[in-house]
């Protein structure tokens, strides 16, 4: 009896998680706790909400908040549709599919600095994007569009497009990997029973792909909320504020400001809270749908 219990205890899968937990305890929890404590204390180390109050009263923070939400929703939706379509298409083996896969993966390998140079040299009024559009006759070379003067919503849309160019392959890969497990016969069975393409997609592909889709979207949303580098490389600080861009601005540019550290840490906690809430909502909603589907 005793022996059985001991074997059961040692066979418990939790043991396999111990290394991960130790790793995170060592390298993640400590800095994170110090960040959280900093965010809830004032200069003298006394507990207070002052940091949060101060931040929420700033206009740039509200703009950053709005921009971040717009960016996250816009990029998540656009990237999901494109990546899913691309993954489904690439999953059908065709003549150059191998080559096309490699081509679509290239932007992912670009270092962030290179992405910055690539797009910045394009977005100048006399950059390559306008050169190309002029050579197609789509733009008047005497008075080309000044992309860099875009602000607010237009700038966010521009950033969504650039971000999509860079991260689309990484979303696609996850979906493509999920499709590997996908039994072609299911789809074919659907066809035999007279389902059209859309129905097959909705009733057969989506449910089977669900864990993968959820993973891909969650990871994407978490990354999208934390957008900053691309915005800073294209427009610089302050022009198109995002939440994490505010953190970087506090850490990088106004390093010695009275509240720079505190603000950076407090915004990180806010960002983490936002992501946590939206991910839980997303998980709950996507979980509920599954239940609903089962009942029907």
């Amino acid at each position: 009896m005793n022996r059985m219990r001991r074997a059961g205890f040692f066979k418990s899968p939790i043991w396999f998680l111990v290394p991960v937990i130790i790793y995170y305890a060592a390298f993640w929890i400590r800095p994170t706790i110090s960040v959280i404590i900093e965010s809830f204390t004032d200069k003298s180390g006394v507990f207070s909400f002052a940091n949060y109050v101060r931040l929420f009263s700033q206009k740039s923070m509200r703009t950053a908040f709005l921009n971040t939400i717009l960016f996250t929703l816009g990029s998540a939706i656009l990237q999901f549709i494109l990546a899913f379509a691309l993954a489904l298409w690439l999953n059908k083996k065709f003549r150059f599919s191998n080559l096309v896969l490699f081509i679509t993966l290239i932007p992912m390998a670009f270092p962030p600095a290179a992405v910055g140079i690539l797009w910045k040299t394009g977005l100048y009024r006399f950059g390559w994007i306008n050169s190309f559009l002029c050579s197609l006759g789509l733009m008047n070379p005497a008075n080309p569009v000044d992309w860099m003067s875009f602000r607010n919503l237009y700038a966010v849309i521009l950033l969504i497009i650039i971000d999509t160019w860079t991260v689309l392959p990484s979303v696609m890969i996850i979906l493509l990997a999920g499709l590997q497990n996908f039994n072609k016969e299911f789809e074919e069975a659907g066809w035999v029973f007279g389902a059209n393409k859309f129905q097959t997609l909705k009733d057969i592909v989506f449910p089977i792909m669900k864990p993968t889709i959820i993973t891909a979207m969650i990871l994407r949303m978490i990354a999208a909320v934390q957008v900053w580098l691309i915005a800073v490389m294209i427009f610089g600080y302050n022009v198109v504020p995002f939440l994490v861009e505010r953190i970087a601005y506090n850490v990088d540019v106004i390093t010695f400001a009275k509240y720079a550290r505190k603000d950076a840490y407090t915004i990180s906690v806010i960002v983490a809270a936002i992501v946590l809430i939206s991910v839980s909502i997303y998980l709950r909603v996507s979980g509920e749908k599954q239940k609903g589907g089962e009942i029907a």
Binding site: Y24, F27, W28, R30, P31, T32, S34, V35, I218, L219, I222, A223, V225, Q226, W228, V244, I247, A248, V251, A264, Y265, I267, S268, V271, A272, V275, L276, V279
Partner: peptide
Amino acid sequence: LVVRMFPAVALSLPLVVY
């Protein structure tokens, strides 16, 4: 997932000290 939620920009400072 929470690990990924904390912006690395802010975490790197205390982590580096550690």
